[in-house]
Amino acid sequence: MLQAFGSLITQLLHVALILAVAPVLVGVVRWLKARLMGRRGPHLLQPWRDILKLLRKRPVMAETASVVSQATPYLALGATALAAALIPSFAQGMLLAPLADLVLIGGLLALARVCLALNGHDAGTPFGGMGAAREMTFAVFAEPALLVCVMVLAVLAGGSNLDAIAATLREGAVGLRISLLFAALSLIAVMLAENARIPVDNPATHLELTMVHEAMLLEASGRHLAVWEMQAALKLTLWFALLAAIFIPFGTAPAGGGPLAWGIGLALWIVKMGVLALGLAFFESAIAKMRVFRVPDFLGGALLLAVLAAALIFFSMGLA
């Protein structure tokens, strides 16, 4: 009973936490990047302020836009939020943990991506269509990379349930495995592409020809833009949480652990997210954006790295 109650409470707290943290995380990454470049940087809550301001504004839609422009933001954010709700943050064994299948999470992200691409098409402007085509092309390489990484993890945990995988890796019985390192690198590359970060896309760009993610949102305004901004922030948080849950799963609290254990888990989770944000800021400051037609090479490399990880893990299984 306590267990069931705890799982419900942790689930609700988790959803509230991740929704509240998402824009702050974007603010943290922006601030860190600004500091690394010698600027003072905006306030950490600036993304939240932007979103709230956008919500107050009247949306202006293109004359050619249809109901798609109005519906897709909510659907995309809903799908992303559902995916985020499945990925453990401070506690494991939450209410939805049995549903937390990595293939499903990939599917929900694909749903959000397709919504975004359709939104890009809706106004019938050149940049929107171009951005949509590029986004879907990148996904062609990113999705199989994610799936093969899931296979690597499933070899260790027996299945593709995220909670089971995190539990297996937390116990530490798998040891230091190079295949996990390869899978982590591959997932990081996928994360960069999915979140439109450098070197795949530039989140701060204002040059239409080079952008992908922003190009699809050019015609969005008001609350629609606010929802899209929230979706992007939530997606970044989701990916960080996913990487943390798989590769640094230590210190999460059991769902029935009570407030103290949850508090420790929360503190550790915030530290993990901070480390990942710092890593991303360093990486983005150190590296240049690549040409669009070089991106398939980059993501194809990620896919092959994942396949290599799978080959190595089969090999170590064959040794045992």
């Binding site: 009247r58 949306p59 202006v60 839609m61 293109a62 004359e63 050619t64 836009a65 109005q70 106004a123 019938g124 402007t125 050149p126 940049f127 239409e208 050019l218 015609e219 008001g222 629609h224």
Partner: peptide, 9 residues
């Protein structure tokens, strides 16, 4: 929401 000509960069 209101409709207006596409901004279209």
């Amino acid at each position: 929401a209101v409709h207006a000509p596409a901004w279209d960069c």
